[in-house]
Computed example of a mutant assay.
Amino acid sequence: MKRHVVLATAVIFAAGAAFAETAPTEVTFEEGAVAQSLTGVPGNPEEGAKVAATRPLGNCVACHEISALSADFQGNVGPSLNGAADRWEEAQLRGIVIDAKHTFEGTVMPGMYKTGPFIRPGDAYTGKAAPADLPPILTAQQVEDVVAFLMTLKE
């Protein structure tokens, strides 16, 4: 019995190691797209919708119109995300969410899974430079969830 428990634990550990999370500095872009999942775990569209609509998380609706979400305010700074799945492939959407500057030069959209380089990031509203490396806005799984949600947005 002990041998089976040890073997099962080793198999579970090895399977988990095969799907190690990709660090922000290790993301590989190809023409703005990121083909490989950051987590190896499928995104959850319902969780992605929450991230897109929640101010302390992704807050996509601050800049984008997303008719599938009921938010008090929807922005018009960025393009409408209605029909996003018809305009972009999954890898392209992942690349845009991770760091849109690889696709749209000069965009004001922040890199959601990026730790640098930044142009003088501030420390909240203190007027001082950030004291250390900044964490990404979203986790790797939240990126996958947002991409899964965006893939549901068809015309």
Rank of each mutant, 00 (worst) to 15 (best):
S70N: 12
K114R: 15
A84K: 15
T9A: 15
A140S: 10
G43P: 07
D123E: 05
T139H: 10
A8W: 12
M151N: 01
W88A: 13
L153D: 04
Y125T: 11
I137P: 06
H102M: 01
G111A: 12
M151S: 01
A124F: 15
A71E: 00
D133R: 15
P42C: 02
V61R: 04
G75A: 02
N44Y: 11
D133L: 10
D99I: 00
M112N: 14
G78E: 02
H64M: 00
K154D: 01
D133T: 14
V34D: 07
P79V: 01
N59S: 14
G75E: 08
L153Y: 09
Y113D: 09
F118N: 06
V11Y: 08
V41C: 08
A130N: 06
F149C: 07
R3P: 01
A53Y: 10
K101G: 04
M109R: 06
E46A: 13
A20Y: 06
Q92I: 00
F73C: 03
P131M: 03
C60Y: 02
G58F: 01
P121N: 08
P135N: 11
G95Y: 11
D123F: 14
N82P: 00
P79Q: 02
P117A: 09
D145W: 13
V143R: 13
F149T: 11
T25P: 06
